[in-house]
C-alpha cells in the first residue's frame, strides 16, 4: 500500500513538474490519452478505420525519420520496408502462422531488407544515395510480378487472418503498437545512439575521426528503420487483409517523405503529428473529390514555404522558448526560466 502511494506520488510529481509545464508535453499526454480513450466514446466504424490506418502510417513515417531525418541517409524507397513487411507476414500467414507471429517475423524480414539496401548504399551519399534507394522497391515490384505463384502477382495475397474479430480490439492492438513503437523510436534517438546518428548526418568523416564505426551505425539505422516500417507493413497487411503491389509503389515512398518534411524532420514526433493531421485532412477533402489532391498539395506547399523547419517545430517554437542560459524549454510567457531562474527577456 505504501509502495502504491509512493509510485502515485511520483507519477503526480512528474506530471506536475515535468509534463504540465510545457504545452508540447501536454499535447503529447493528451494525444496518448485520447488515442486510448476514443473507442469508449466513438463507435463509428469509418472513424475507427481512419484512425487505425493513420496509426499505421504514423509508425511508417516515424521510421523514415529515424533513418533519413537523423542519419541523413535520404531514402526515397522506404516503401520497400513497408512492402517487405506486408508481403513477408502475408506469405507466412498463408502458410498457417498466426498474426502475432507473422508481424514480428515480417519485420525481421524487413530488417534483412534493410541490410540488403544498407550495404550497397554505404558508399553513396546525398543525391546518389536517394536515387539508388528509389530503385529498390521497383526492383522488388518486378520480382513480385515475376513469381505470381508465391506473391499473387498483381492481385497480391488476400484473405489474411484479421488482427481480431472485434473492431475495438483491432483498434487497440494497432494503437498500442503505434504508441509503443513511436515511444521506442523517440527513446532511441534520445540516447547515445541518437547523438551518433545526429553527428553522422552533420559530418560523417568527423564521426569516423572520433573513433566511431560509422558503417555499423549506418547499418543499424537501416535495420531499425526497416524493423519499424516492417511492423507497419505487417499491421497494414493484416488490417486490410491483403498484401498487394500497392504497398511497394513509388507513391508510398514519397508520401512518407511528404509527411516527415511537413511535420519537421529529425524529431520523430513531427512526422507522427503530421500523419495525424494530413491523413484525416485528406479524408476530409473527399468532400470535394475533384480537388482533393490539389488542395492537399496546396496545404503542403504553403506550410513548407512559410515554415521550412516543418509545421510542428514551428508551432512549438511559437509557444515555447529556450532559456538562454540552461537551454531548458520554457513557456513563452514566463519571465524567468523554470529551472535556473535566468531572465528570459
Amino acid at each position: 500500500m505504501n509502495l502504491l502511494r509512493y509510485y502515485l506520488r511520483k507519477v503526480f510529481t512528474v506530471l506536475r513538474n515535468e509534463v504540465l509545464v510545457l504545452p508540447s508535453r501536454i499535447v503529447v499526454l493528451l494525444f496518448f490519452l485520447s488515442m486510448l480513450l476514443i473507442p469508449l466514446v466513438v463507435d463509428d466504424p469509418y472513424f475507427i478505420r481512419i484512425l487505425v490506418l493513420t496509426s499505421i502510417f504514423a509508425i511508417f513515417a516515424a521510421s523514415w525519420d529515424l533513418l533519413s531525418g537523423f542519419t541523413g541517409q535520404i531514402n526515397f524507397g522506404h516503401a520497400l520496408f513497408f512492402g517487405v513487411g506486408a508481403y513477408g507476414s502475408a506469405i507466412m500467414n498463408q502458410h498457417g502462422l498466426p498474426h502475432w507471429a507473422t508481424i514480428p517475423l515480417g519485420a525481421l524480414v524487413a530488417v534483412a531488407a534493410g541490410l540488403v539496401v544498407g550495404v550497397p548504399c554505404l558508399r553513396l551519399r546525398g543525391t546518389y544515395l536517394a536515387l539508388t534507394t528509389l530503385a529498390f522497391p521497383i526492383i522488388l515490384l518486378g520480382i513480385v510480378f515475376a513469381f505470381p505463384g508465391l506473391t499473387g502477382g498483381e492481385l497480391g495475397i488476400s484473405g489474411l487472418t484479421r488482427l481480431s474479430t472485434s473492431r475495438t480490439v483491432t483498434y487497440y492492438i494497432v494503437v498500442v503498437i503505434m504508441l509503443l513503437s513511436c515511444a521506442a523510436m523517440w527513446k532511441i534517438t534520445d540516447s547515445k545512439i541518437g547523438i551518433i546518428f545526429h553527428a553522422i548526418r552533420e559530418d560523417e568523416l568527423a564521426v569516423k575521426a572520433a573513433g566511431i564505426n560509422t558503417t555499423l551505425y549506418k547499418l543499424l539505422a537501416f535495420c531499425l528503420s526497416g524493423f519499424f516500417a516492417g511492423i507497419a507493413g505487417g499491421l497494414y497487411a493484416h488490417f486490410m487483409r491483403i498484401a498487394g503491389p500497392s504497398t511497394l509503389e513509388v507513391q508510398m515512398s514519397f508520401q512518407v517523405v511528404i509527411y516527415s518534411v511537413f511535420g519537421g524532420i529529425a524529431t520523430i514526433w513531427g512526422p507522427v503529428g503530421a500523419v495525424f493531421i494530413l491523413v484525416p485532412l485528406m479524408e476530409f477533402f473527399r468532400l470535394w473529390p475533384e480537388f482533393r489532391t490539389l488542395m492537399f498539395a496546396f496545404v503542403v506547399i504553403l506550410i513548407l514555404l512559410y515554415m521550412p523547419g516543418g509545421l510542428l517545430p514551428w508551432i512549438r517554437n511559437k509557444v515555447e522558448e529556450e532559456c538562454p542560459r540552461c537551454k531548458i524549454r520554457n513557456l513563452v510567457t514566463r519571465r524567468v526560466c523554470r529551472v535556473c531562474a535566468a531572465d528570459m527577456r
Binding site: 547515445k192 547523438i195 551518433i196 545526429h198 553527428a199 552533420e202 559530418d203 568527423a206 564521426v207 572520433a210 566511431i212 537551454k327
Partner: peptide, 13 residues
Amino acid sequence: PFRRLPIIANVMV
C-alpha cells in the same frame, strides 16, 4: 564540427 549539435554533444561523440 557538428554544427547543429550543442558543443558538448560534439565532444560526447
